[in-house]
């Protein structure tokens, strides 16, 4: 049973590898951010798969933390792309 889960996990890892290629290629910071967020989703899916594979559902907590911190990373990405690291692109659009 757990082997089936791990096989699916390998598939997920391969999709993650595809996103990694996008992170490498870019060309824009925005492309890289989007690709990284995609790997975040794949990572959470992997955690769920591993929890199912081992039957240890405490592993799901890791998925929760990853999901929450991915949101923080997204905000940090946006901040890093703004001129002095303090702004908000929506604001910049208006000005």
């Amino acid at each position: 049973m757990s082997d089936w889960y791990l096989a699916i996990g390998i598939g997920l890892l391969l999709t993650l590898a595809g996103a990694l290629f996008r992170v490498w290629r870019g060309p824009d910071a925005a492309d890289r951010m989007m690709a990284a967020q995609l790997t975040g989703t794949a990572g959470i899916a992997l955690v769920v798969i591993l929890a199912a594979a081992s039957g240890d559902w405490a592993m799901l907590d890791v998925g929760l933390v990853l999901a929450l911190l991915a949101a923080l990373a997204a905000v940090a990405f946006v901040k890093a792309a703004s001129p002095n690291g303090a702004g908000d692109p929506e604001e910049d659009d208006l000005s």
Binding site: L16, V23, A36, L50
Partner: peptide, 12 residues
């Protein structure tokens, strides 16, 4: 960005 993805994989 690669470092952040790396952190994700290492959790796995």
């Amino acid at each position: 960005v690669f470092f952040i993805v790396y952190g994700l994989l290492i959790s796995v």
